[in-house]
Design a protein around this nucleic acid. Sequence first.
DNA 1: GTTCTGGCTATGCAAACTCTAAGCCAGCTT
DNA 2: AAGCTGGCTTAGAGTTTGCATAGCCAGAAC
Lengths: 166, 166
Amino acid sequence: MSTTIQMSEELGPRSGWGKAIECPMASMFEILGTKTSYLIMREAFYGATRFEEFVERTGISEPVAAARLRELTAEGLLEKVPYREPGQRTRSAYELTEKGSDLLPVLVAMMRWGDRWLFTNGARVELTHADCGAQVHTELRCDAGHPVPTDELELGLNPRRLRAAR
Amino acid sequence: MSTTIQMSEELGPRSGWGKAIECPMASMFEILGTKTSYLIMREAFYGATRFEEFVERTGISEPVAAARLRELTAEGLLEKVPYREPGQRTRSAYELTEKGSDLLPVLVAMMRWGDRWLFTNGARVELTHADCGAQVHTELRCDAGHPVPTDELELGLNPRRLRAAR
DNA sequence: GTTCTGGCTATGCAAACTCTAAGCCAGCTT
DNA sequence: AAGCTGGCTTAGAGTTTGCATAGCCAGAAC
């Protein structure tokens, strides 16, 4: 039973969550709900900024890439920044905003899971700590700095929100 | 420029990644490619084990829930375990395997991102450390234990795999 | 001013995903 | 043996996501 999360009292027998209490993960899928949006974000972290780079590196078709870039820009994960190379006309680059950058832990967690469970011969690509060369992973920690194993993880309602709703 | 990842030499001008080098994140989407599969996994972490629980708590229709449970079981993230309540016939419960449990950091990272960027009034639900009550988040760390800021994150090819491919 | 190129947009179609509604089956309960 | 219930499956339809192909537009380069 150490693989499941503890639930606080008031959440015990809840049902119909999708409507009653908004789940932050489910909400995220309204913005990042397709595979292609993650591929676009991956390339943004890898340094892609131009339309052609996104298309080429992700293998996504142009119409879909254009749609995703538009959506991600509208949602504030990417930002259109005009740039101009010498002898070229002004073009738009797509750069990560803070909101977009903050998605990195999600992508790293996904990559590490894929590495571990999907490639038996070891990872093709590795994320390493530039300073020391060791591999990078994601870790659950509380804001007080303790590592948090699954069985010490507890889900509860935010008391401030509960009061506000009354 | 501190929001993008450093790339090692041999990855510099790569294109056509989708085919050339398998990306662990992209591979993950072949198993966990739909929103509903994440909702199912979320409920598994919240302690759901029976078919009806998954259907009711996620709000997914029965045919889709059945399909996802079958897929996730086939991929080894969940495991069918027969159980029997007194006076009832034998039924199947779906329990998290190690492969499934290891997905927790991905889900937590998603939740925290949703909390932070999608709910301006603060999170509805909170993940806390049962021992100390502080909120839980995901953190990038290297295997040597150092916290890793984005600009110290480097992407490179696995040297062992490179040798093997020769 | 014609051409070329990067960065898109438009159109049409196939595949994937999800829903509702209905039905099936095993085996307890009566 | 008839009914009920949990755990599904089947059928049909609608929406979303994706692709390929083709075209458009602005502004250098010639």
